[in-house]
Design a binder for these strands. Structure first.
Lengths: 146, 146
DNA sequence: CAGAATCCAATAGGATACTG
DNA sequence: CAGTATCCTATTGGATTCTG
């Protein structure tokens, strides 16, 4: 175990991101092929992360998810679940009851997303006051200069 | 320093996300007020993360960013930079040369995003083969059943 | 060079109604 | 219950033109 200085994690992250970035920022590279974009586009849509977080607590049925994410429409819930299943992040199990019930749960791959996602959420929560303050200051400055 | 078992980080992430989730999944809570959604919506747009990653390597000028992200339009670059500045993640410095040049750099708050972002990118890169395989399997299965 | 403004196309996503 | 299908609106974002 090495001793870690305060700026150490930051430098590691800088280097990792820079190395990654240089791999696909070359002008003759097709941006559509960049795997990072593909994955982040998914995570970036309106509902994916919410559903993953909801499923982090355990398996859920379709209507249970609807209750936990009150403002999602049936359409988008069904579609996002399908996309997540297609990407192998969640699995779908149909119980042939009557009426039928369907249970969704994270796969191992889906669970592996929880750690980096948790880090990001923690950052969002910790930074939210700073961001709000910055926005307020920016808007106030913009207002005085017309 | 405690010993860490293999599943330990996962459990920590599960608990953290679940606790966070329960805070705002209550049905009488206005989803628009959820700070996590606000922040993740920003990170989820098409260009924000790309720009942050580009700036992780150091300050950049407007046209340098355009070269490094070849498929961004002037409009979206300007708009995304403005939003990032408003949120306090980057700072903007104008040099009164002629013609003018403007330099953007990450603030301390912006740098603090690099670590969680790096974790997510690393996950995306590591998981990309699994995701591609899952998609292929899903599509193949969907094809046979009509 | 670094934008702002305008216009327009593509997509995301909500509401509703219908099905097994 | 767990979806699908259709329609429609709002937002995103590209192309182009104009300015200091």
């Amino acid at each position: 175990m090495v001793t870690r200085l305060p700026g150490d994690n930051l430098r590691t992250a800088q280097e990792g991101l820079t190395a990654c970035f240089q791999g696909w920022s070359g002008s003759d590279f097709d941006p559509a092929l960049c795997p990072v974009r593909g994955v982040l586009d998914r995570l970036g849509d309106k509902w994916t992360t919410l559903i993953v977080i909801a499923l982090a607590a355990g398996p859920r049925r379709f209507s249970a998810l609807r209750r936990e994410i009150p403002d999602i429409s049936k359409r988008m819930l069904a579609q996002t679940l399908r996309d997540l299943e297609r990407d192998g992040l969640i699995s779908r199990e149909v119980f042939p009851t009557k009426p039928p019930s369907v249970e969704y749960r994270l796969t191992g791959l889906g669970e592996s997303l929880l750690e980096p996602l948790n880090a990001l959420i923690a950052w969002a929560q910790a930074s939210q006051p700073d961001i709000a303050a910055a926005r307020h200051a920016y808007d106030a400055a913009a207002a005085v200069e017309g």
